[in-house]
Design a protein around this nucleic acid. Structure first.
Lengths: 254, 254
DNA sequence: TCAATCCGTATGTCCGGACAATCGAACCTC
DNA sequence: GAGGTTCGATTGTCCGGACATACGGATTGA
């Protein structure tokens, strides 16, 4: 008795719109991703060979490969030579992107509240100058913010920015996140260097966050670079570990 | 006066060996990466157009594009339509890989020492069972290790593994890291889900790490999956923040 | 029964070409 | 001189084909 061995993509209603300005490979990868997310393509199922899929959609094989490759890069698919391409047994969600705390909270359905404590220009300390690549003592922006969730203090954020990059409006800073402001100003974020640690709260820190002195805090330092390599932001943040932890997914690059 | 506008790749001694089994695009990307690392391609410099580069090397444009794309994915290069491809102003080192503490320490030039405290089989707790996807109460491996650097306790690592995956030899566990043992056993690591937080040390934890009770600790929980989607490891680790912090670089996916 | 070999299948690599979209600079107009 | 426009340069997308390579199962042999 022969096994059915149906190609699960055959039952899918895959279509591409050649009049659309959206690239064909992107249209296909989006539909495949949606099918995986939606459960139409179950984990472990084989995807059927690229040649046939290309023929069925009226696309060339390189285009189909490009679509599949983008999902492999996202960790949703796995290719095996001589075997085929199969859906990873889910569990994968986000491969760790450079997200802001604001976006994280909003994605979690919370309405983060921010109060700007300090928004001024100061001479750069040695640490800040080194991180931003400016001269020590030169003027930089300094922003201190208290972030609340459900009315409770959650984090205290200190950021330094090089001068002339962005005009930091206190109202905007309270309405949205710093990253959104930078992106809106035409800055293309490229990479960031982060360090996550822990330490006890100092007296003023404890006061601000409503914790006891010496209480464990989660700390994060981050320098963010744009695509020209310029440092565009240096942040020194502390979080209440009872309210926040860093959650992320990461992929093994093959 | 006309600007020179030399193509920096023109002065490079780029060559590909067609008799080698190493893919051509990979040979090229490696040479370009080495040139960037070595300083022959300086940050900000334009790379010269793909067509000409392909012609000079006797390669087709898709092959050259594949080489360049892999470096773009690594964050070393940036492409701009109508402009060209240029080298990112360094700062980039590792785009965050799934590394083990053992490898991290070894890369930092330290000789990590490990003492296996517990290596046994236990019934899975609810938490472990959920993480590994096995039935609660079913047998799983449990390993507890104390990791030292420079003779000082640095971290206490508790790991659970599904049965039958790997035979955990105490001697091997003390000589190398868990991830290496898994890879050596033919397991292809694919992704991991991590959570990093902080809390105060309990009395037994403080005892083991040589800290005071209530001292801030850095905590990390991780579930690792292989490329079939199986959970292959669930770790619950605590670190002394004075001795260790998480450092990594991450890229903004465009 | 078990091991080595063969073979079909699917992905991996590579080619050469074509046109579109976008950026930046030179150019032109007002 | 300020503004918009044209145009060359470069990457982005897509095609159709070819051969190489590795995996898994079936076949063959000991």
């Amino acid at each position: 008795m022969p096994k059915p061995e149906v190609d699960p993509t055959a039952t899918l209603d895959l279509r591409v719109d050649r009049t659309s300005p959206v690239p064909l490979y992107f249209q296909l990868s989006q539909q495949l991703e949606a099918a995986i997310e939606h459960g139409a393509l179950t984990p472990g199922s084989l995807l059927g060979n690229e040649i046939e899929l290309a023929g069925r959609l009226g696309l060339s094989r390189p285009t189909v490969r490009q679509a599949i490759q983008s999902l492999v890069d996202k960790g949703l698919l796995v290719r095996r030579r001589g075997v085929g391409t199969q859906v990873v047994h889910s569990q994968v969600k986000r491969p760790l992107e450079l997200s802001s705390l604001y976006d994280d909270l909003e994605a979690a359905g919370q309405r983060p509240a921010t109060s700007v404590v300090v928004n001024t220009v100061v001479p750069a300390s040695a640490e800040v100058a080194a991180a931003l690549g400016v001269a020590e003592g030169s003027e930089v922006h300094r922003v201190e913010r208290l972030r609340l969730a459900h009315g409770e203090p959650m984090a205290y954020l200190v950021n330094h920015l090089p001068p002339g990059l962005l005009d930091l409006d206190t109202g905007q800073l309270e309405a949205t996140g710093l990253y959104r402001l930078m992106r809106a100003a035409g800055i293309t974020l490229h990479s960031a260097r982060q360090s996550i640690g822990a330490r006890g709260a100092t007296a003023p820190e404890a006061e601000r966050l409503g914790e006891a002195e010496g209480a464990p805090l989660l700390t994060m330092q981050r320098t963010t670079f744009d695509d020209t390599g310029r440092a565009v932001e240096f942040g020194d943040h502390i979080y209440r570990p009872s309210r926040y932890s860093f959650e992320f997914q990461l992929l093994v690059r093959p």
